[in-house]
Amino acid sequence: MSKMHITLTVNGTAVEGLAEPRTLLIHFLRETLRITGPHIGCETSHCGACTIDMNGKSVKSCTVFVGQAQGAEITTVEGLVNADGSLGVIQENFREHHGLQCGFCTPGMITRAHRFLQENPAPTEAEVRFGMAGNLCRCTGYQNIVKAILASAAQLNAAKEAAE
């Protein structure tokens, strides 16, 4: 099968590679680009382990052909660390509030939370639960994930206020 030349921006860096048109974006990210933060839990868009941020939206990368991502701006969990290599606010709050156990859903969960808090910077608990419902976790029962996201919202808002 002839291959497409794919160019993308991932976590701020321009990248390129060759892929069959049928290649799923998650496989291109994981196997061609070796960005293994996003995981594969179902390949049917249900679990959200493969969630990335693509052109400003949360996307389940197991149900996007790589060709559909041509030229896209992509952020994965790897891109959410601070410039000095320390954990970003949401990452730190997941650690602080025990919002993860096996860690398999975590990259997708944090990447979704990153976008969700831009969509709704001051959510209620119910809004967090609804906004995060596309990402499954088998370990935590979500309670501490919700706590981590609410804490992140408060911190991000406080930082924003301080900057203004």
């Binding site: 994981r30 933060g37 996003p38 995981h39 790897e78 997941f94 025990h98 993860l100």
Partner: peptide
């Protein structure tokens, strides 16, 4: 005690079977 595992998991640096190449 906060978990020592979380520093790698929260930034996508876990090493699961499918990550092995």
């Amino acid at each position: 005690r906060k978990r020592v595992e979380d520093v790698r998991f929260t930034q996508g640096k876990g090493n699961y079977v499918d990550d092995i190449r």
